[in-house]
Design a protein around this nucleic acid. Structure first.
Length: 492
RNA sequence: GGGCCGUUAGCUCAGUUUGGUAGAGCAGCGGACUUUUAAUCCGUUGGUCGGGAGUUCGAUUCUCCCACGGCCCA
């Protein structure tokens, strides 16, 4: 139990006084007939005379966020989901009893105001109260008005306070919602079906990542929180749902960083008869539409960098990117030993199990990824690191796969799906061997998925897009925690 | 996991270098004030200085351990 501070105690006293006056601290509901932004929209343009002629009374409600007392009158600002407006409370307008009630209200309380609009001397649209009601009593003080709440730990742990006092925070989450809505509309318009597949999976699959494990008592079995929905969505393509998408959470039991939260939101979609090349084009269209609707253009500022999304976006092979942008020598590309030596020089952590392809992608992540500011497709990923992707027809050592990088970060991963069940079995077997050798991120054998492929999956291209990272880009947020309402924190 | 930094009043921060148990602004409380908007003016309360141990006559300050957070690295 935390100790009661003086300020909180004072609020409890006021609550008691209000109660003694017969005021309900938590009445049910509150009648309103206008939101604050509607009021501003309807009356904000009128001059004093026009407002006087209007003379109709309106009821609105919100949280008191500023309070200036004058003995027998008060100015307050109240805030609802749509905006902020000033209200003028006069003792001679609201009756002695109501004014006494009002005197016991604090910043943070919810209040209902009934009154008419006018303009103050300084020209601010203000509702003068004819009647007022306490709508909810707040028992804790809000952070102060100058600096607000800046302590990041409190902002994440008590997001409700952050949202009350930091306007930009709310804007970020409004933008987040709009981005997701735009994406959803985009796919629905293209005849994709939105689906929900298991979050609890007996065999976690679809990504090389360490899963969370849990246990189902009634079934008496282990279950894993999904690291990706991929294998279930592709089963749906087998079933004839040729265009599907899912926007939902994935869970990965890994470290927390500026770009990793253990649960994060992923869009995955699958499109029968398409190839990864079709998806590159589709990405350009999708982002163009999202940017248009959310930012009103195709250029954004991210952490001081200007990023231009105007298509077409460069398509560069992993090998070329390593050579041209990473300054990697030919020998590293052709020889595993040289690659390993070079990686060590760069202080990259290698595992004994890493093959040449794995080492090259690690070098890429280290040297090239941070440089890819404008949207760029990297293609030609080694088959070794792409256990679910279709092999390239010309070169079976690479796959028909791309990753999309924007702002120096991986944003999406896409490929033409491997629909050959025999090849897929071989890839699973290699993953199982890696797992047995100690790789906790390697895929599990999934016999049911193989059976589904044996029934036949049409040629399909699929992709996953990290929604949180997209939101970070479009809201200029430096940390993933700024775009997740309740980021994971260690319990105190 | 490693390195660096941080944790002081409800909030935002000083103070700690050179040890003598703390200050400001806002908020709160009391008073004045019926067009203010960072309202103003007068007065005033409020702190186990993140937790624990050590050194010391004495620790918010120095040392060590722990917790939580931030940034960087892995």
């Amino acid at each position: 139990m935390e100790k009661i501070s003086q300020v909180i105690e004072e609020r409890a006293n006021k609550a008691k006084k209000l109660k003694d006056l017969g005021v309900n601290l938590y009445p049910a509901g509150c009648h309103t007939d206008i939101t604050i932004s509607e009021a501003v929209k309807n009356f904000g343009h009128m001059d004093s005379e026009a407002l006087e002629r209007e003379s109709k009374t309106y009821s609105l409600a919100g949280r008191i966020v500023a309070l200036r007392n004058f003995g027998k009158a008060s100015f307050i600002h109240i805030q609802d989901r749509t905006g902020r407006i000033q209200s003028y409370i006069r003792k001679d307008k609201v009756s002695e009893v109501k004014f006494e009630t009002f005197k016991l209200m604090d910043i943070g309380d919810f209040i209902g105001i009934k009154g008419t609009f006018f303009r103050t001397r300084t020209g601010e649209l203000t509702i003068v109260a004819e009647d007022l009601t306490l709508v909810t009593k707040s028992l804790r003080p809000l952070p102060e008005k100058w600096h607000g709440l800046t302590d990041v730990e409190t902002r994440y742990r008590q997001r409700y306070v952050d949202l009350i006092v930091n306007r930009q925070v709310k804007d970020v989450f409004v933008t987040r919602s709009r981005i997701i809505q735009t994406i959803r509309d985009f796919f629905v318009k293209k005849d994709f079906l939105e689906v929900e597949t298991p979050m609890m999976q007996p065999i976690p699959g679809g990504a090389t990542a360490k899963p969370f494990k849990t246990y189902h008592n009634a079934l008496g079995m282990d279950l894993y929180l999904r690291v990706a929905p991929e294998l279930y969505l592709k089963r749906l393509v087998v079933g004839g749902l040729e265009r599907v998408f899912e926007i939902n959470r994935n869970f990965r039991n890994e470290g927390i960083s500026i770009k990793h939260n253990p649960e994060f939101t992923m869009l995955e979609f699958y499109m029968a008869y398409a190839t990864y090349e079709d998806l590159m084009e589709l990405n350009e269209k999708l982002f163009t539409e999202v940017l248009q609707r959310v930012c009103g253009g195709s250029i954004i500022e991210y952490q001081g960098e200007t990023i231009d999304f105007t298509p077409p976006w460069p398509r560069i092979t992993l090998v070329d990117a390593l050579k041209d942008m990473g300054g990697v020598k030919e020998a590293v590309l052709n020889d595993k030993k040289a690659a390993a030596d070079f990686a060590l020089e760069c202080q990259i952590n290698l595992s004994e199990r890493d093959g040449h392809g794995q080492i090259l992608t690690k070098i890429f992540d280290h040297l090239v990824e941070p440089k890819l500011m404008r949207p760029t497709f990297i293609i030609g990923y080694p088959t070794e690191v792409s256990p679910l992707s279709r092999r390239n027809d010309e070169n079976p050592n690479i796959t028909d796969r791309f990753e999309l990088f924007i702002g120096g970060r991986e944003i999406a991963n896409a490929f033409t799906e491997l629909n050959d069940p025999v090849d897929q079995r071989g890839r699973f077997e290699r993953q199982v061997a890696l797992r047995e050798a100690g790789d906790e991120e390697a895929l599990f054998m999934d016999e049911d998925y193989l059976r589904a492929l044996e029934y036949g999956m049409p040629p399909t291209a699929g992709e996953g897009i990290g929604i949180d990272r997209v939101v970070m880009l479009l809201t200029d947020s430096p940390s993933i925690r700024d775009v997740i309402l309740f980021p994971q924190m260690r319990s105190k």
